[in-house]
Design a protein around this nucleic acid. Structure first.
Lengths: 342, 342
DNA sequence: GCGAATGATACAATCGATTGCTCCAGCACG
DNA sequence: CGTGCTGGAGCAATCGATTGTATCATTCGC
């Protein structure tokens, strides 16, 4: 490993004491040093290629310029954009991202991973685990650890959070279907134990009601899990019970995939006989036949905002006026799967 | 932030000197200390909830227990499993992963990101950028920085690397198609400026030849980029020139998607009239109609192996006998898109 | 029974940067 | 001309752990 230049060497090269060099190099304290001396130090530092040792600095200042991010299941492509957004934002302030993925299903694993991050003295945390309520959040808040939640509900959370606005997203979908002339609309919801499943279900009820669409319980089917097979089963049950339905709002793209199959199994055509919509707008599903209409959530922006919020917390001494929560507005990607009512 | 227990406090609680406590806590040096004292120290440490300050330790030992990973375009779902695999392996040895994504197209950005990681004193690097040859690799080697390449060619690289065995992968595909009775097989290759594009093209030539399949240049079309549109254009051109072809080997799943469209545009059916195969086996494409036959690359394992190799380098003082390179064997996911010859 | 070997622990330097404090020169003011 | 500021720079403690060396009490060998 290349031998690094230390502050002392820079100081010697500039003919000053370490402490003076340190102050000259540091934006904040630069003004207590003579301008000419500052110039000399800066020049020496540049010439020698000096880069401060973050460990030494961190040891003294108790800041690592590192932020930890806890991801449940990093293989889920959803998190790519969130990470990218956060990383870009953090880089601006000179922070780096320590990634740790935890097993969502195992709450102890999540706790362990968080502990590791804290032991490493990360300055703050971005938590993307998705369980609807777990004690970890409360624990972080109690320990006064700067943390931001991302992509999970804020209800009664003591921590600030950044989430997509599911209510608005479902609104876009329902509105669009109504515009297409649909009046008998069904819903394949996600599991109600998850914040997204529950929230989108509520939003569906709320929007259909306010738009004057009649929805009774027979038009709604709850899936056990966000998987294609579950979507297939739910959509099948739904269509069997309510063959008059002309449009299905799915809580998630995978469920929508299942719905495609269910519609086809009944010998109907997706898009013309039955309109289907998804949620998340994951890549490649626009390649399907017909391409899937879906709600696009600004995941990258979620990452950016979460990081930005954390930066703000860190620079203002963590104590916000109270937990801030942001809901980011989604957009609708209209494609062939949501044609007009036949 | 919670106030942390220091070594000194542990030492006091155990009634020994700091240095003794340090030795007792450290596996390596534990045998110098009286067994009974070790027990006392350990008990005190546990009771107080002592965790060593990694910064102080790193400052002294010059190791951060952190590995940096450079990813081009983290939004590419390909990298999720690689990251997950690496992280899991590193965690075993107490290392953490610092993620940085760089703009592939901007070589200066890559260099800058790497520099940041080095400045942070990461103990080693895992480099996943994919340009076929760039000076950065040589630079890392020259600077004696422990680094492993992942998912990119090793040809003449001075650094160890872990890649998928594209030659074997294409072999699986060609063999399978031949088994299905196909004899007139075309290839939509990736750009030859990229290692994967070039390598798979070469592999295709090699395997068809050794299996006695006649392939002349008219059966091959190079795509400009790994995108659906490019695949569509290439496959179109290919089918127009060689309408007798009954199977198309695509260098990548996205190109295969384009080929689906091209086949359909000619009024033919994918799977029965023309077999199509992809590469990478990205999730969800098994949902297509017909589901895509594709080569599954063990990305997670690539991450694991890369991390393992790096760990080995770090513990053995970096100097390997020479750069090791591993090629991981892919498998074939046979699905409906590659039916028997009509 | 005395010097040497040994085992166990304490002392203190060290890693590299930050920062409170001290020191000093130069200048203004009375 | 002495006192008091003040800007600028040096001194040294400090962060928390690691580690080379010194110290001390035993025990062993002869």
């Amino acid at each position: 490993m290349t031998d690094r230049i230390t502050l002392k060497e820079v100081a010697e090269a500039a003919g000053v004491h370490m402490s003076t060099a340190s102050r000259a190099l540091n934006e904040e304290t630069r003004d207590v040093v003579n301008a000419e001396t500052v110039a000399r130090v800066l020049k020496a530092a540049r010439k020698l290629g000096y880069t401060p040792n973050p460990l030494a600095r961190g040891l003294r200042t108790n800041r690592t310029m590192t932020v930890g991010m806890i991801i449940p299941d990093i293989e889920n492509p959803l998190f790519g954009p969130i990470i990218a957004g956060a990383e870009a934002r953090l880089g601006k302030d000179g922070y780096s991202l320590l990634i740790a993925d935890a097993d969502v299903k195992d709450s102890a694993s999540v706790a362990r991973v968080i502990e590791t991050l804290i032991e490493r003295r990360t300055d703050g945390l971005i938590v993307a685990t998705s369980a609807r309520k777990d004690p970890i959040v409360a624990d972080l808040a109690k320990r006064d650890i700067p943390a931001v939640l991302v992509n999970r509900t804020a209800d009664s959370s003591p921590l600030p959070s950044i989430v997509g606005d599911d209510h608005a997203g479902i609104g876009l979908v329902v509105q669009h279907l109504v515009d297409q002339g649909h009046t008998r609309i069904g819903h394949v919801s996600g599991p109600h134990t998850m914040s997204t499943g529950h929230g989108r279900y509520q939003a569906f009820l709320s929007w259909t009601q306010s738009l004057g669409i009649e929805v009774d319980p027979s038009a709604i089917e709850e899936s056990e899990w966000y998987r294609v097979e579950a979507g297939l089963a739910s959509a099948e049950a739904l269509l069997k019970r309510r063959p008059d339905i002309t449009a299905i709002v799915c809580a998630n793209d995978l469920l929508a995939m299942g719905a495609y199959r269910a519609v086809r199994q009944r010998g109907l055509t997706v898009g013309s006989d039955v309109a289907i919509t998804g949620y998340n707008d994951i890549p490649l599903l626009d390649l399907l036949e017909p391409p899937l209409t879906s709600v696009r959530v600004p995941y990258r922006q979620m990452g950016t905002e979460a990081a930005g919020l954390l930066m703000a917390m860190l620079s203002s001494g963590s104590g916000q006026d109270g937990p801030i929560s942001m809901r980011l507005a989604p957009t609708l990607s209209v494609r062939g799967s949501s044609g007009p009512r036949a």
